[in-house]
Nucleic acid binder design. Sequence first.
DNA 1: GCCTAAATGCAATATTATTGCAATTAGCTA
DNA 2: TAGCTAATTGCAATAATATTGCATTTAGGC
Lengths: 140, 140
Amino acid sequence: MVQDSIRILQAQGYKATKPRKLVFEVLEGIGRPLSPYDIQDILRARGKHLNHVTIYRTLDLLCSLNLAHKVLSSGRFVKCSLAAIEGCHRFMICQQCGAIREFADKQLCQEENDFARNLGFHTEHHFSEFSGLCSQCYSK
Amino acid sequence: MVQDSIRILQAQGYKATKPRKLVFEVLEGIGRPLSPYDIQDILRARGKHLNHVTIYRTLDLLCSLNLAHKVLSSGRFVKCSLAAIEGCHRFMICQQCGAIREFADKQLCQEENDFARNLGFHTEHHFSEFSGLCSQCYSK
DNA sequence: GCCTAAATGCAATATTATTGCAATTAGCTA
DNA sequence: TAGCTAATTGCAATAATATTGCATTTAGGC
């Protein structure tokens, strides 16, 4: 919910401005990774205008608060589910339709971090991206 | 080894040109993620000049052959170890010193793919990045 | 409603990436 | 080893993406 994200924003001392709400709505409504300019275009089509600089700054902020995530393979942004395990983001991205789905699994996350630790590496954040086909596109 | 990579290139019908060898040498020698322009700068410092377009095209080719990998969080490129499990790339990146290490674990890879499959997702490629501290930086 | 710090928009600029085409080169063949 | 040809590179132009400083506007506390 956009509301939840806004609340988190405010709890950290950031203002709940119109541009920020608009960006949230787009990310949440579209549900697939979007570039800053994608977001601008979508808003334009809805009769709203945001300067690209504002969008860049908003996305930076959202990412720093883990409210959004920069999808690694495309450089596009997607809204994070708030339920994501801290420091662990795992996304499935359908190559066909572009749908993106975040999922969290505590055990898997733990195993990966343990694996790294055995190699002497102390993990703080950890991103995984799966690209392939979602069930709908696969069955076609 | 640069030689191995060149061999793979040729086996696929691509020419073993000077620019490609130079890019390989840089990626292999430096051992941390580099942007196309980083690569150009490093070469310039060695008295070699490559046009940035050539570097872009070379990196595209290397990535398509899985000989290099675009590091997701930074947009920089790193040479892939040839032993990487097909379709699965896992990197540890030290936030402090920038060192990058690729590692492969068949079991972990399998588990992740199984996990996705249980959610109806058919994985083709799969990238993981761990950011944190390497053992050296951690002990400081 | 007023005030102030925070946030936005604008303009300029920097950085990164792509394209078409002419010039060059790797590697095959004689 | 020289010549041939397709593949590759370099160049110039341009497009796309990202950043900065500063004047203007706005959210939210009073």
